[in-house]
């Protein structure tokens, strides 16, 4: 016991506790501004019980809410070079990465999961908005490629869940190149006759919207989700006009024919299972006829060798 543990820590803890207690147990709904008891929020899949506003949902919690019995396996994504541009703005990109890794416990913003939904194998690539705004960089591109490969190997449908501000500026042109790279990955899933669905969550913008997120065989969005190519501030600055009400929300997009469905979080799992089951027709027929679907090759040096890639990066 010393001065640090006896005095500094209790003082700090009391400070933290005073602030955290009300915020932790109660959360204010960004939609209706009413207070929600935290346990109710969890029980309600982070949807406000008062106004049905869909709050942001952490990637792993979301996966648990969708897979049978909340069980899924996280697949390893091959490593990519860290900070290839040695990018520095007001802060070093490598430091930002470290902070976000500590904060989330994940390597990057995209996770790849496999498991059963309604007894059917489904592979999911999901972006975590909490990690650098879900931005798409080289690791995210590699995540989509890993997910596509897993879906093809398992003859399973692929689901992408987007939550992202767009391309990761700190990786420069290499992040822009993830638009063709992710698109390429899902083209191969489609060629294998497997369904590729997208769930667009709040927010889905920029380079993510303009690549894999808008290319689903079926595009589902969460109520109220902001879905856009260009953010509202930029548009307002360009045209010097107020934007129409509800502009760029999921409901607005469905009305303009840009997406298929807006689905409440509580109905999502059932909707996915129903549609995947219906559209797996071709893949199942092929399997029954003993036809081996020509599996597109997704291969390149080190594709399945995470260590090799890390070594190459050093």
């Amino acid at each position: 016991m010393n001065w640090l543990t006896n005095f500094v820590r209790p003082t700090l803890q009391s400070l933290v506790r005073k602030r955290e207690t009300p915020e932790n147990l109660w959360e204010k709904c960004p939609g209706c501004e009413k207070m929600i008891f935290h346990r109710d929020l969890i029980a309600n899949l982070h949807v406000c019980p008062h106004c049905e506003h869909h709050l942001r949902f952490a990637a792993k919690d979301r996966l648990r809410s969708m897979y049978d019995r909340g069980e899924f396996q996280l697949l390893t994504v091959p490593g990519v070079p860290t900070d290839p541009l040695k990018f520095r703005d007001t802060k070093r990109y490598s430091d930002r990465l470290k902070e976000n890794r500590t904060k989330t416990g994940d390597d990057d913003s995209m996770l790849v999961a496999a498991g059963a939904m309604g007894g059917m194998n489904v592979v999911t690539a999901i972006q975590n908005f909490a990690f650098l705004g879900g931005s798409l960089g080289m690791a995210g591109g590699e995540g989509m490629i890993t997910a596509a490969k897993a879906a093809i190997d398992r003859k399973a449908p692929l689901l992408a869940i987007s939550a992202s501000g767009g391309a990761r500026m700190q990786e420069g042109i290499l992040s822009l190149m993830q638009m063709p790279r992710t698109t390429l990955a899902l083209s191969m899933v489609r060629e294998a006759g497997l369904p590729y669905f997208v769930l667009l969550t709040d927010p889905t913008t920029g380079g993510v919207a303009a690549s894999f997120a808008m290319l689903g065989d079926v595009a589902i969005a969460e109520p109220g989700a902001m879905i856009a190519f260009t953010g509202q501030r930029v548009i307002e600055n360009t045209i010097k006009e107020k934007l129409p009400a509800g502009f760029q929300t999921a409901e607005y997009l469905v009305e303009h024919g840009m997406i298929d469905l807006v689905v409440h979080r509580r109905d999502l799992r059932d909707t996915l299972i129903r549609l995947f089951d219906l559209l797996m027709n071709r893949a199942r027929k092929a399997a029954a006829d003993g036809e081996s679907v020509a599996i597109p090759q997704i291969g390149y040096a080190g594709a399945n060798d995470a260590e090799g890639v890390k070594r190459a990066a050093e």
């Binding site: 919207a209 808008m214 879905i227």
Partner: peptide, 19 residues
């Protein structure tokens, strides 16, 4: 970056060109 461009699916149009 404009209202009409967004309404008519700028993001989707770009994605389809890449595809």
């Amino acid at each position: 970056p404009g209202v009409g461009a967004e309404q008519r699916g700028q993001a989707e149009a770009i994605a389809r060109a890449i595809e």
